[in-house]
């Protein structure tokens, strides 16, 4: 029942992007997103689109796979476009009943659609080429300066990675409990809101109990394996910048500068 969520799930293959240090990809995604909101001209959008196309090419992930993930949010995209299309005041160029489309609205809607698609595609490129573990590692490493002001950086990243590990397990469990309660006549499809909330009790109580039991077990298993926080820990896969990562930072810098330039010039 949860199979349809493929948006941005890690795609296992070998590519230049897969091999990049996750910190580069994380920083790069931020730079890309900021640049996306910096540009405001057709030339600028073209530049972003070209950059994205190059990244997709470099990622070795089939374009069809990426687009299939987009399907789930296509609806959201359409609504946004319609709002902009018909609700932006300006010079009317087309009318159907009470629906009025303005020139400004059309231009704004296209830009918005472009911006949203580029945003989603761009950030999914990161998650498609980076495992969740690498991502949390990168976050831990990038946030390290925050340790000085007593932010528990290691603990936060450990929690994130454990949460990611248990999401599929708990989803499967939800499915199982739901089926078992349906077999006892439970109705999870009621349209009445009060009934709907009430019907969740037989699902949520067992789910919480199970989650707590798992947490307890896992804590004990971690202790038994000598886990005692981040102090004195070594890393099996430490993050070390390679030549290609430095090149990538260079490319990112150039790209960012170019985006600002389009804003200034056009």
């Amino acid at each position: 029942m949860f199979d349809s969520i493929t948006l941005g799930q890690y795609y296992q293959t070998d590519s230049a992007l897969h091999r990049l240090d996750p910190r580069v990809k994380l920083v790069g995604t931020f730079a890309y997103l900021i640049a996306l909101f910096v540009v405001d001209s057709w030339v600028g959008y073209l530049l972003v689109a070209l950059f994205l196309a190059a990244m997709i090419r470099l990622s070795n992930v089939p374009f069809r796979y990426i687009v299939r993930g987009m399907k789930t949010i296509l609806f959201l995209l359409l609504i946004t476009v319609c709002f902009n299309l018909f609700l932006t005041p300006g010079e009317v160029i087309w009318q159907f009943g009470f629906l009025k489309m303005s020139r400004e609205g059309l231009s704004f809607a296209i830009k918005m659609a472009l911006r949203l698609s580029l945003l989603i595609l761009g950030s999914s490129i990161m998650t498609l080429t980076t495992t969740p573990t690498q991502l949390t590692d990168a976050l831990e490493s990038l946030m390290r300066p925050l340790k000085k002001i007593h932010v528990p950086v290691h603990e936060i990243s450990m929690m994130m990675s454990i949460a990611l590990r248990f999401i599929p397990i708990l989803m499967e469990e939800t499915d199982k409990i739901m089926k078992a309660q349906i077999a006892r006549g439970a109705d999870f499809e009621s349209r009445n809101l009060v009934k709907k909330i009430k019907s969740l009790v037989p699902l949520l109580v067992p789910l919480f109990i199970s989650a707590f039991r798992r947490a307890n077990d896992l804590a004990m298993a971690m202790e038994a394996r000598c886990y005692r926080g981040g102090e004195g820990r070594t890393k099996m896969k430490p993050l070390v910048y390679q030549g290609r990562d430095r090149v990538a930072y260079g490319v990112l810098l150039l790209y960012f500068a170019a985006c600002i330039a389009t804003r200034v010039i056009f």
């Binding site: 409990i177 089926k179 009790v201 067992p206 109990i209 199970s210």
Partner: peptide, 11 residues
């Protein structure tokens, strides 16, 4: 239908 580990559904 009684599922595996049915006690996990008690609430």
């Amino acid at each position: 239908l009684v599922f595996q580990y049915p006690e996990h559904q008690l609430f």
